[in-house]
Amino acid sequence: MAVGLRLIQRVSATRAFARVAPHVVPALDRTVHRLTRGRVLPSARMLPGLVLTARGARTGQPRVTPLACVPEADGTWLLIGSNFGRPGHPAWTANLLAHPDAEVSWRGESLPVRARLLAGEERAEAWRTALAFWPPYAAYQARVEREIRLFRLTRTGRH
């Protein structure tokens, strides 16, 4: 593993990062993604990322959220609701629970998807995959009492 990646993982597991990153990373990602018409997502330079557009749980209005993801070999994606190890679930997880049909921008392409909250052994297996992919998720889980929500996104045929 490159020294730079280990350093990034160490920094991203800190409480200071958890305080600053939620305000800076998504705003930067949203702006650059919009300005480049979906071609560039800065945080994806460290981890694969997508931009999720889901309806708000309460309002039903579109909510655009840049997220790190774990692409799976079968064309699905894992989304980890770590919220950078902060106490509450991120809002996008409540949006997907209320409205599982969504859209992702993945490598410049808009794709309809359906989200499914993982539980039991399926969640445990996905969690192991997520930890192998990005070890700082373990530090995030250790800091919070809630169980971090994991979703699997599957492409759908709807538009």
Rank of each mutant, 00 (worst) to 15 (best):
17 F>A: 13
42 P>W: 10
151 F>W: 09
131 L>D: 02
25 V>W: 02
90 P>I: 03
55 R>N: 12
60 G>R: 11
63 R>A: 10
110 S>I: 07
88 G>P: 00
123 R>T: 02
140 Y>L: 13
48 P>C: 10
139 A>H: 10
23 H>K: 09
17 F>Q: 02
12 S>D: 01
149 R>G: 14
145 E>W: 13
105 S>T: 06
64 V>A: 09
135 P>M: 03
90 P>N: 08
77 W>P: 03
10 R>P: 00
55 R>K: 15
1 M>K: 09
15 R>C: 04
147 E>T: 14
79 L>E: 03
12 S>T: 13
54 A>M: 08
1 M>F: 10
87 P>E: 12
59 T>I: 11
113 V>P: 00
73 A>W: 03
93 T>L: 04
85 G>W: 05
39 R>M: 12
77 W>M: 07
57 A>Q: 05
89 H>I: 06
157 G>R: 14
71 P>E: 13
48 P>E: 10
38 G>Y: 04
8 I>F: 15
135 P>E: 01
66 P>R: 12
6 R>N: 13
34 R>G: 11
93 T>G: 04
82 S>G: 14
7 L>R: 08
2 A>W: 11
146 R>T: 14
158 R>S: 15
133 F>G: 07
108 G>E: 08
62 P>W: 14
125 E>G: 06
148 I>Q: 13
100 P>W: 01
30 R>Y: 05
21 A>G: 00
60 G>N: 08
91 A>W: 05
60 G>Y: 06
114 R>D: 00
51 V>N: 05
79 L>A: 05
115 A>M: 04
51 V>R: 02
159 H>R: 15
10 R>I: 01
136 P>V: 06
115 A>D: 01
142 A>N: 13
107 R>D: 10
56 G>I: 04
148 I>M: 15
20 V>G: 03
47 L>F: 12
58 R>N: 10
80 I>P: 00
44 A>P: 05
28 L>K: 08
49 G>V: 09
44 A>H: 11
33 H>I: 01
120 G>R: 02
40 V>S: 08
53 T>D: 13
153 L>W: 08
100 P>M: 04
41 L>Y: 11
63 R>H: 09
26 P>F: 06
130 A>E: 02
119 A>V: 01
3 V>L: 15
44 A>T: 12
75 G>N: 08
48 P>V: 03
147 E>P: 04
58 R>C: 02
95 N>S: 06
2 A>Q: 13
1 M>L: 12
33 H>W: 14
43 S>I: 04
31 T>I: 06
107 R>V: 00
42 P>L: 12
103 E>I: 00
105 S>H: 03
21 A>F: 01
35 L>E: 12
6 R>Y: 09
81 G>F: 11
84 F>H: 06
13 A>S: 10
154 T>Q: 15
88 G>C: 05
125 E>R: 12
146 R>V: 14
89 H>P: 08
3 V>D: 10
14 T>P: 00
80 I>L: 15
50 L>H: 07
12 S>N: 06
47 L>E: 09
139 A>N: 07
86 R>Q: 14
19 R>D: 08
38 G>H: 03
136 P>L: 07
23 H>V: 00
76 T>L: 05
89 H>L: 11
146 R>P: 13
